[in-house]
């Protein structure tokens, strides 16, 4: 659906995006992840035709953004970082204006707008001036705007910024449901969001792609060991020795300060070996009760930091 080929964007001497390539398949929700200033917004601006690329090409549905911009723009709904709303218009005036701008036939406008407003939960606010709306509602109006004309592709630049937790969940669910009919590119620097919504993740750092994979695979691939935290009551040196004796344990270390007679240990072991059972029996035999046992799966946050700091090391 979207093919991005060797895309480079230079602002004078600064390379904001360096030679990145990836494709987005039809009906996919792709997460675009990176720290602030990594080039996410620049890439999205290029895909939507707001900025031209210095080098490389973007094709949407086979149409090149530079050669046939209008064909591409017809197929894309864009929500930029700042919702592009006119503050002195009411919600319905604004959405009607966008419908005209996107050449939605007059006869279909009303039905389409009603659906979209219902979907975005702004039906009760149609008559209000946009400047009187809260940030969350402006964001919804921005999202509604991107849905007008029923484009195949949605490009959403940080769609949940500035929303309260309840709204974030609502918008995420909305995006998920939209993903059934649309191809979506979603940028974010909030990791749980990406892992909750997206099928595939592109991690971008300093203008370069650091990783492309599903959230699960990223989590697996970078996890060369599995880690546990265990809170155990007992003398430190003996417990530590017992843990190390378990087959598969690489090392353990104490985390934090002792709480009464208990200590928290971080235990790292080979990925394939589950040490929880042997740990339980070893401690039970020695008479040191395990108060708490948790597995520490690598979160997307850890992966993100790992990937982006590895990049840092290269430079």
């Amino acid at each position: 659906m979207i093919e991005i080929n060797k895309l480079t964007k230079r602002y004078g001497q600064i390379e904001a995006v360096k030679n990145i390539s990836f494709t987005v398949n039809e009906g996919e929700i792709l997460g675009f992840l990176g720290p602030n200033g990594a080039g996410k917004s620049t890439t999205m601006n290029i895909i939507t035709g707001y900025l031209p690329a210095t080098e490389g090409s973007v094709k949407v549905d086979g149409f090149d953004i530079l050669e046939e911009p209008e064909e591409v723009k017809k197929r894309i709904g864009f929500l930029p970082e700042q919702p592009p709303v006119y503050k002195d218009m009411t919600v319905s005036e604004y959405l009607k204006f966008v419908s005209d701008l996107k050449y939605v036939p007059k006869s279909k406008q009303k039905a389409q707008l009603d659906d979209i407003m219902e979907l975005c939960g702004i039906t009760d606010h149609v008559g209000r001036l946009i400047k009187n709306l809260s940030k969350g509602y402006r964001q919804r109006v921005g999202l509604a705007q991107s849905l007008i004309g029923n484009p195949d592709v949605l490009v959403l630049d940080e769609p949940t910024v500035g929303l309260d937790p309840k709204q974030i969940i609502e918008i995420r669910n909305l995006i998920k449901s939209l993903g059934k009919k649309h191809t979506i590119i979603l940028s974010s620097h909030i990791l749980p969001e990406v892992s909750a919504v997206c099928e595939r993740v592109v991690i971008i750092n300093k203008g370069e792609i650091a990783a492309v994979d599903t959230p699960e695979n990223l989590s697996k691939g970078l996890n060369s060991a599995s880690r546990l935290t265990a809170t155990i009551a007992g003398p430190q040196n003996q417990v530590s020795k017992l843990i190390n004796d378990i087959y598969g344990v690489k090392y353990n270390e104490v985390l934090g300060k002792p709480n009464k007679d208990t200590l928290t240990y971080v235990i790292e072991s080979d990925k394939e070996i589950d040490v929880r059972r042997p740990l339980f029996f070893a401690m039970a035999k020695a008479g040191y009760p395990i108060i708490e046992l948790r597995s520490m799966d690598m979160t997307l946050e850890d992966i993100f930091l790992k990937v982006t700091t590895v990049e840092e090391g290269v430079h």
Partner: peptide, 14 residues
């Protein structure tokens, strides 16, 4: 200034 330029320039209207 308001960022609505993005809306105009990314719409199919030339």
């Amino acid at each position: 200034k308001n960022g609505t330029e993005v809306l105009l320039l990314t719409s199919p209207t030339s």
